[in-house]
C-alpha cells in the first residue's frame, strides 16, 4: 500500500466517520487541536487502523503523532 492510498483511506474516515469538515483537513492539520481528535475519537482511530491497515495501535503510539502527516507516515512505516 502506498502513501497516497493511506491518505485516501484516512481522509475518507475523517470525513465519513468522524464527519470532520473537509476544509479542515490538510497534511499539517494537528490531530487534536485542528481535527478535534480527542480521547473519544482515538478509539475510532484504533478501530480504523485495525480494520483498514491490519495492525493494532497502542495508546503510546499517539504520543508522537501530532499532525495528519505524522499519522499517515506512521501507518506507512507499519504496513511496509
Amino acid at each position: 500500500m502506498n502513501i497516497d492510498e493511506i491518505y485516501e483511506k484516512v481522509n475518507e474516515f475523517l470525513i465519513e466517520d468522524l464527519e470532520i469538515d473537509e476544509s479542515k483537513i490538510s497534511g499539517d492539520a494537528r490531530l487534536k487541536e485542528d481535527l478535534g481528535i480527542d480521547s473519544l475519537e482515538v478509539v475510532d482511530v484504533v478501530v480504523l487502523v485495525e480494520e483498514q491497515f491490519n495492525f493494532k495501535m497502542k495508546p503510546e503510539d499517539f504520543k508522537n503523532l501530532i499532525t495528519l502527516d505524522d499519522f499517515c507516515k506512521f501507518i506507512e512505516a507499519q504496513v511496509a
Binding site: S39, V42, V43, D44, V47
Partner: peptide
C-alpha cells in the same frame, strides 16, 4: 475496542 479507560 478498548483504549485506556474508554470502551466502545
Amino acid at each position: 475496542e478498548q483504549v485506556n479507560n474508554i470502551s466502545l
